[in-house]
Design a protein around this nucleic acid. Structure first.
Lengths: 207, 207
DNA sequence: ACCTGAACACCGTTCAAGT
DNA sequence: ACCTGAACACCGTTCAAGT
């Protein structure tokens, strides 16, 4: 790593570049490997320079969540029924977290409240209310969906580090568990599909 | 912090004591404040001593999850229908995470697979299978419940640091969202209840 | 205005050494 | 066997100083 610029010379570094590099680093090496110093090295800059574009590491992490969420979330499809809107919301989140595994752990503990996400949320809520859900129920519904998607991605992230239960490890003491795993391990996709299908079926009983 | 023991003198430190102190420290100051050095100070011992009871920090965190899960999980109630078994499982997890907020983030990314948790899982799965669910569906069902409980606790933990959306911050641009929050902020308890009720209602449609 | 470099107060972990 | 202390390679962040 060679310093390629003298002090005071502008690096021309923008916040956008910092965030893009941070997301890339987190996706490549994992969030736990994301440090101000390593990110600075990646950008060929001193660590302290980053504090010009970001309040601190917390602020960087908040910004990553906003960045990924902004990239993932789309306005709900026009003239769709509420089931499609809910499924689309889940699919948006799922795609975003799949493309950016480094953001999964950060999504778990923050909500990015920006004008754009608020606007999209309001549009989804309107569809749900027009379908007959009370506003508060509609909000609960969105929370339930988001929690389910993030929850399954987290569980999956954990299983990468520490492999999940599989059939051979079970043995004869646990016949039902063994039967459940006989057709291969349970994947995140199957768990997520099951959870979302169950949730939507449950929501339908509320109408 | 005074050293109260000469080198080589047994501290009489047990793994149980280490884990109890770790859980207490994480609950009191937050997981992010849990460090080997601070934990050692708490136990009036050198940091390196802890490595005699725990492989490394990862191992300590795994052990915390096992410890809290063992304390929380109970065998499913005898002669209960499947809805009660599922609700009891959710309630066990909810109680454990409420009593041990320091473990929430750790629960998100690991599964504690021990003989005891496997046995309890098998019992729950048997009730579900006897109720008519296929073994694989039963397992999906348990995963969905666990994911929902952990997911809502995580979201709640995040809101402690970074307050959630509330009515005054919304304004006239988002009437449905404002209406949803008019009766006060959405709490973790209400979100969790809603999610679990919806999930169970959804499961019923599968039978 | 933008960037640097030293410094401070922390980390997890290895390793040789004490009793 | 159990515990220590120094050491190494890291952290995030403050602060004064450079251009």
């Amino acid at each position: 790593m060679v310093r390629s610029r003298v002090q005071g010379k502008h690096a021309g570094l923008t916040r956008e570049q910092v965030l893009r590099a941070a997301v890339r680093l987190a996706d490549r090496d994992g969030v736990e490997a994301l440090s101000m110093r390593k990110l600075a090295r990646e950008l060929d800059v001193e660590a302290m320079t980053l504090y010009h574009h970001v309040r601190n590491k917390q602020g960087l992490e908040d910004a990553i969540v906003e960045y990924v969420l902004a990239e993932s979330l789309r306005p709900p499809p026009e003239s769709a029924d509420w089931q499609e809107v809910v499924a689309a919301h889940a699919a948006d989140l799922h795609r975003g977290l799949t493309e950016h595994p480094g953001a999964v752990l950060l999504f778990a503990t923050r909500t990015a409240v920006t004008p754009r996400t608020l606007a999209i949320l309001e549009q989804s809520l309107r569809v749900l209310r027009d379908a007959g859900f009370a506003p508060r129920t509609a909000l609960h519904l969105i929370y339930a969906i988001a929690g389910a998607v993030v929850g399954q991605h987290l569980a999956y992230a954990g299983e990468q580090a520490q492999p999940a239960v599989d059939a051979p490890a079970i043995g004869d003491d646990h016949p039902v568990l063994a039967a459940a795993l006989a057709d291969g391990p349970v994947t995140m996709q199957s768990r997520l599909d099951f959870t979302l299908t169950s949730l939507i079926a449950g929501f339908e009983t509320l109408l």
